[in-house]
Design a protein around this nucleic acid. Structure first.
Lengths: 233, 233
DNA sequence: TTTGACTAAATTATATACAAGCCCCGGTAT
DNA sequence: ATACCGGGGCTTGTATATAATTTAGTCAAA
């Protein structure tokens, strides 16, 4: 039984929703598996009511799907869907970048460059965890720079849905350095206030991120398949 | 007490969510007003439970917001936010149009053109209701043509949020005809498979839609303000 | 052996009961 | 007169009980 919020502002439903969301994003709850209301309620030491409300929230965010009298399952996503999601993400980020290139404040531009320098250092050290953290803030700043809450919201929604697959990415030093090079193009475009260059740089960056994820995922699935066959023999 | 679904597939929560959504979109429930769980439950002749679930769904779609122990209120949207929403919508539609220009099938292109011709006729007659209906399908087809479910989802989410303001638009024959002219540019671009032209045409179309909505809204608010002042005197 | 209907168990959906937090309103003191 | 501070009422949040629906499993008949 997990701890409930000491006496936080949030209701239990929201707390549970956050916990479940994190579990889905981290891959702790595999895609396609069903949420059992009773057992989740037991885990958190609450009744089924707040659990149900939490599941509604997850569905709203597209992380799970609900079918009447059948339950809520973690959204299953095919390779083709991942491809689509990256394409959409690329377009959204490209749009944000284009707008950011001439809307960001001086201090935002400076922050972007400073994060980039920091990521360069982390890439050199091969610190994937640190890199990922700054990377998230880097991209988030690009969204914010667009000065459009609806674009930001759309981008973040999609980013959330892609989160479970991010684990396949940015895990080796080689990829980190390539990512840095791509970021260099983005930073340059923003500093130059060049919308077209920013748009292009972000599209390219997302293309290579997509490739990375899809290849790694494919490789892992192949291994699983091979292992399964071996088991049967 | 309203009728519940005869014996439909949907659960009561979903049914209620749809009804409330429609009410919000039509403006029957003004922005900023609070949903009273008890009275809504009474109206539909159900308990509070499905009403609460419906409200969660509304919140998920961004039509309402929840604050713990205070209730759920219809999302309040300022003129500036409307402006942002139209900007985001313009970028999303432009992106969809760009992709559609070279991804649509022949029959989709034909359908687009045929809808356009039909709208031309309706504009001539001044049939606003008919025009609006086809117009929705016209834009929806443009989304679908992008072949990207995430872009489609993002576009439709935003479209839903903009829906309450659509009532300020496409109400006089003049605007209908201008809209038609803009559609002509879009259709031409799609038929020519010209991504850049499609993108531009859609941005322009959305700019003028935004202007229409914002102007009409401003005018109406001014009238309300004037009336209020007169009341006080 | 397979198909089909039917029953029972499990799970979700809804209703109802209870607890907790917010808000207004009046009282009191400065 | 005004600012501060409980208390009561109302609304939301949570728990539990009941109804509706699906699914799995059994047994009979083709």
């Amino acid at each position: 039984m997990l701890d409930l919020p000491a006496s936080g502002k949030k209701s239990r439903s929201e707390f549970i929703a956050e916990q479940l969301e994190e579990a889905v994003i981290k891959g702790a709850i595999p895609a396609g598996s069903r949420f059992d209301e009773t057992s989740i309620a037991a885990q958190f030491g609450v009744s089924r009511t707040p659990v149900r409300e939490a599941l509604h929230i997850l569905c709203g965010r597209g992380l799970a799907e609900r079918e009447p009298y059948k339950g809520v399952v973690v959204t299953q996503i095919s390779a083709q869907r991942i491809d689509e999601m990256f394409e959409a993400m690329a377009e959204l980020e490209a749009t944000c970048g284009r707008l950011s290139s001439h809307r960001m404040t001086m201090s935002e531009r400076a922050a972007l460059e400073s994060m980039h320098r920091e990521m360069n250092a982390l890439a050199e050290e091969g610190d994937c965890v640190g890199y990922n953290e700054i990377n998230t803030r880097f991209h988030d700043l690009l969204f914010q720079g667009s000065r459009n809450s609806d674009l930001i919201a759309a981008a973040q929604t999609l980013r959330l849905k892609l989160a479970p697959f991010r684990k396949y990415q940015l895990k080796d030093k080689g990829r980190l350095k390539r990512s840095c090079n791509e970021h260099q193009q983005i930073v340059d475009a923003i500093l130059d206030q060049s919308p077209k260059a920013a748009e292009n740089a972000l599209r390219r960056h997302l293309v290579s991120a997509a490739q990375e994820v899809l290849l790694k995922r494919q490789r892992q699935e192949d291994e699983v398949a091979k292992a399964t066959v071996l088991d049967k023999v």
